[in-house]
Amino acid sequence: MKGNVYFRRYWQLYALLVLPLAYFIVFKYGPMWGVQIAFKDFNFFQGITGSEWIGFDAFREVFRMDDFYRTLRNTIVLNLLDLLVSFPAPLILAILLYEMKVVWFKKLSQTILYVPHFISWVIIGGIVYQVTGVWQSAGWGTILYLAALTGINRELFEAAEVDGAGRMKRIWYITIPGMKTTIATLLIINLGNMITIGFDRPYVIGNVAVRDYSDVLSTFVYRIGMESGQYTLATVVGLFQAVVGLIFVLGANYASKKLTDESIM
């Protein structure tokens, strides 16, 4: 009964969920119907339902391919390097911006840092030919940490300053612990993406000369799926990424819960 009263009072909030839910149903859950292609000898003219079942034969073929293990290695190594550099970068930037006292310089810095997030990788690829994920993503991640920082009670900083705590001690004992939940959540999400990597960055910036190191699972899927027409094998690799990514998320969430008592589930 209380639930019905709450729904009638705040029905506008539930109405706002319609579009996000529709997006996930259409673009996230709907495409799951195509996962069965991984277990079929997919024929474009026969369609998904008309194609012949082959079980796990396609998985065996993929796991025998040298290119699969090469792109898997590149994906993990590049994501690991990206995590080591890109994850702390927005955290450090957020703390630096939060500590700034000159308002106009703070706003200017924020604007300059946010702009790269809205630039297409195609444009970035025309500017530079090296891995540039930190520059492209650090400013955007800073927004999340700044939002977390605004939730910290300013009286804690004032009390610490009265007690003689310097700026670094206030950052270490107040600022960073105050962002613990946000840090844990973003770390779990990033670890969940360890086995996946965006298609546009390696495709635009990579080339044949460095393919042994720039080719990743997403570009591998594109080559065997769109260029070679081996849709079954491409679906197998995509399903492999999804399953391993889920394992990473669950593992990272479990570890975070045990170590910091913070989790997303």
Rank of each mutant, 00 (worst) to 15 (best):
residue 214 S to C: 10
residue 178 G to Q: 02
residue 198 G to H: 04
residue 177 P to F: 02
residue 195 I to A: 00
residue 62 V to L: 01
residue 261 D to E: 13
residue 175 T to D: 02
residue 58 A to S: 11
residue 257 K to P: 07
residue 206 G to R: 09
residue 210 V to G: 03
residue 8 R to A: 10
residue 150 T to C: 01
residue 26 V to C: 03
residue 225 G to Y: 00
residue 70 R to M: 07
residue 27 F to S: 06
residue 181 T to G: 12
residue 182 T to H: 06
residue 151 G to Q: 04
residue 58 A to Y: 07
residue 204 V to G: 01
residue 170 R to D: 01
residue 169 K to V: 13
residue 231 Y to F: 11
residue 33 W to D: 14
residue 156 L to P: 07
residue 176 I to K: 02
residue 131 V to N: 15
residue 152 I to W: 00
residue 106 K to C: 07
residue 145 Y to F: 06
residue 41 D to I: 02
residue 24 F to K: 04
residue 233 L to D: 04
residue 184 A to W: 02
residue 10 Y to A: 15
residue 16 L to R: 05
residue 106 K to I: 00
residue 155 E to H: 15
residue 202 P to G: 07
residue 71 T to W: 07
residue 181 T to C: 10
residue 208 V to Q: 11
residue 138 A to H: 05
residue 185 T to L: 01
residue 226 M to A: 12
residue 236 V to M: 01
residue 162 V to G: 04
residue 50 G to H: 10
residue 160 A to R: 08
residue 5 V to F: 14
residue 221 V to L: 06
residue 122 V to L: 07
residue 36 Q to P: 10
residue 147 A to C: 02
residue 43 N to T: 06
residue 161 E to T: 12
residue 258 K to L: 11
residue 208 V to H: 12
residue 83 L to H: 10
residue 254 Y to D: 09
residue 256 S to K: 08
residue 166 G to F: 08
residue 188 I to S: 05
residue 60 R to G: 15
residue 147 A to D: 00
residue 20 P to L: 05
residue 144 L to E: 05
residue 255 A to T: 06
residue 189 I to C: 05
residue 137 S to C: 11
residue 60 R to T: 14
residue 20 P to T: 06
residue 95 I to Y: 00
residue 263 S to R: 07
residue 17 L to A: 12
residue 147 A to F: 04
residue 191 L to S: 04
residue 41 D to M: 05
residue 67 D to T: 09
residue 178 G to P: 03
residue 36 Q to K: 11
residue 57 D to G: 11
residue 203 Y to G: 05
residue 144 L to N: 08
residue 10 Y to L: 10
residue 207 N to D: 09
residue 10 Y to T: 14
residue 86 S to H: 10
residue 94 A to Q: 01
residue 202 P to I: 01
residue 244 V to E: 12
residue 231 Y to W: 13
residue 180 K to D: 05
residue 247 I to T: 06
residue 240 F to I: 01
residue 239 L to K: 03
residue 4 N to W: 14
residue 182 T to S: 12
residue 228 S to W: 14
